[in-house]
Design a protein around this nucleic acid. Structure first.
Length: 570
RNA sequence: CGGGCCGUAGCGCAGACUGGUAGCGCGUCUGAAUGGGGUUCAGAAGGUCGCGGGUUCAAAUCCCGCCGGCCCGACCA
């Protein structure tokens, strides 16, 4: 490719709305342009990188024996109603109407479609195991698209769906995908690591996310230095907090005035001085239109993912003050579970089990209760792990937990039979019995992976692409472009020879200053630049500049091609 | 969904408080010089000041509404 024949609109300055570095570099290097919030056009360089990543993903998927299909992005709503996700996932669904006012949706994922296919086409255990994958555009009505391709309304994803005849067989399919993901991210130059994850709206038995460590990541991961434990913060549990919950001296329950106390902190401060760890935090939720109380220790943070698991639905929200007053008789700030009328389910975090000597709201504005004993004073409680772990706590295997931010680039789920039961996808086993297919699903964000690579590989001058995904591997930079000049003729000759050898090479034939061309080639991030100028030419040499590490080397003209091939192999 | 900030040339911004000829840098175009790190000089093009309404002799500027963008929040009772 000749630079003047393609479009590489580099920018000196980053657009103001690009927050994180990878987003700025995407725009500055001329890889993409924004059409609207969360919607991007891929320009030639960006598209080439995307295609490279796609090719790696395809190769690794094919290697596992998965077969490629392509499903419609536009989907009928009835299959989503059948699976229950028309309501469950309503927040992220893009719905459209046709001219007859019939409703459709733009698929955020394809479990419903593939399971419908399996229901009609897979009827015998002899057809399993089978794994379908596709590379497709997905649509999600994100409440807040941001960070460029990281959280977009429209994005490209590889999704795969395995169908097996038993749990054990499904486990094998799951492991194959897990292994393929490790290889894919490694080939993309990413240090991705798997962590235990919450299954969320997808449902299913368990899952792993593949995370790339990055300050700007939207996920938080709890892990131990010994590498034996890693989990999404939404999923992570620990051996308990550093401060134990009191369960000693039982004293009579006592109401005391607490005017102007509205928060845990207020009560922890003078004159009350009740440590947060001795308070019970009382939260009120509306779960599918019915109230529920959630109790946590005062110093703990609720984990919403765990709460969703407890409720068995994602359709819940914190109650409003106007809803709480008639329910409990007090406003937020003085709430508690002591004496709450039966009929309101109460969920409490495990840490409060057997707690006594606690303080909580009295359900009367301006009053709290002290010496609360959970066993003595509270009604029936459902105990669950509901708290978010904190840095420094011990992991389940006894090592200190650390927390870091990361970008989620892939997610593999063992789904079980959730969808096959709902969509009636069953098969006949070798014993003649009809059973639901056992499923797994495996997502990998291609566009997000692209940006994650940038987020992990850049320097002050721009992007540093690994050879495996670079838009072009070699950039030939003649420092003069007069067609008749020796410089340009050598550039053309090298360009032709390398192209003929199948090397992906771009010729910077712009009539620009050397500085401009050098800066641009580094900003876009080509792994190898070959500069040809009159000075080096006189010495019979060209200059090799390796983007990653910045090594420069004078190479004799006659061995240039061989050295490029060497570079490609290294 | 709630709160805050913002919308002026392709990009980054000033002008607004105190209404009166719409500016700067980068980029683009023309010409010249230069030619191994975003070079220099001369000239030029490019703006319904997000949209609609209002106040006013006069609105980028003040007021109202809408649209769009960004940030924070949407457990912290």
């Amino acid at each position: 490719m000749r630079w003047t024949q393609t479009l590489i609109p580099t920018l000196k300055e980053a657009p103001a709305d690009a927050e994180i570095l990878s987003h700025q570099l995407l725009l500055r290097a001329g890889l993409v342009r924004k059409l609207a919030g969360g919607l991007y056009t891929f320009l030639p360089m960006g598209l080439r990188v995307l295609r490279k990543i796609e090719a790696i993903v395809r190769q690794e998927m094919d290697r596992t024996g998965a077969c490629e299909v392509l499903m419609p992005a536009l989907q009928p709503t009835d299959i989503w109603k059948k699976s229950g996700r028309y309501e469950q996932a309503a927040q992220v669904l893009f719905k459209v109407r046709d001219s007859k006012q019939r409703e459709w949706l733009l698929g955020p994922t394809h479990e419903e479609v593939i399971t419908t296919l399996a229901a009609s086409e897979i009827s015998s255990y002899r057809q399993t195991p089978i794994n379908f994958y596709q590379i497709q555009t997905k649509f999600r009505d994100e409440i807040r698209p941001r960070f460029g391709l990281m959280r977009a309304r429209e994005f490209i994803m590889k999704d795969a769906y395995s169908f097996d005849s038993s749990d054990e067989a499904a486990q094998v399919s799951y492991q194959k995908m897990y292994d393929a993901y490790v290889r894919i991210f490694e080939r993309c130059g990413l240090k991705a690591f798997p962590v235990e994850a919450d299954t969320g709206v997808m449902g299913g038995k368990f899952s792993h996310e593949f995370m790339v460590p990055a300050q700007t990541g939207e996920s938080e991961v709890a892990y131990t230095e010994d590498g034996k434990y890693a989990a999404n913060l939404e999923k992570a549990n620990s051996g308990g907090p550093q401060v134990a919950t009191p369960s000693d001296a039982e004293q009579p329950l006592e109401k005391f005035p607490t005017p102007d106390v509205r928060t845990i902190e207020d009560l922890a401060g003078a004159p009350f001085n009740v440590p947060a760890s001795r308070q019970i935090k009382t939260l009120v939720f509306i779960v599918e239109n019915k109230p529920a109380l959630v109790l946590l220790r005062g110093d703990d943070h609720l984990n919403e993912a765990k709460l969703a698991g407890t409720f068995g639905t994602v359709i819940f929200r914190p109650a409003q003050a106007e809803e709480i007053l008639p329910l409990l008789g007090a406003n937020p700030g003085s709430l508690g579970a002591v004496g709450v009328r039966s009929g309101i389910p109460i969920y409490a975090d495990e840490l409060l089990r057997n707690a006594s000597g606690m303080t909580t709201g009295a359900n009367e504005d301006g009053f709290h209760l002290r010496h609360v004993s959970v066993n003595r004073d509270l009604p029936t409680i459902t105990w669950k792990d509901l708290r978010t772990v904190r840095e420094g706590e011990l992991s389940p295997h006894g090592q200190p937990l650390r927390i870091r931010r990361a970008i989620e680039v892939g997610h593999v789920f063992k789904l079980g039979t959730k969808y096959s039961v709902a969509m009636e996808a069953s098969f006949l086993g070798d014993d003649g019995q009809r059973r639901p297919l056992v499923m797994g699903c495996y997502g990998l964000g291609l566009t997000r992976t692209l940006q994650a690579i940038i987020e992990c590989r850049f320097d002050a001058n721009g992007i540093i692409w690994p050879k495996t995904v670079a838009p072009y591997v070699v950039c030939i930079t003649p420092l003069g472009v007069e067609p008749a000049s020796e410089v340009m003729q050598l550039a053309e000759k090298l360009y032709a020879e390398l192209s003929a050898l199948g090397v992906e090479v771009i010729l910077d034939d712009r009539n620009d200053r050397p500085g401009v061309k050098f800066k641009d080639s580094e900003l876009v991030g080509f792994p190898l630049r070959i500069a040809i100028g009159e000075k080096s030419l006189k010495l019979g040499q060209v200059e090799f500049a390796v983007r990653d590490g910045g090594a420069k080397d004078a190479v004799p003209i006659e061995s240039a091609v061989a050295r490029v091939l060497e570079f490609l192999k290294a």
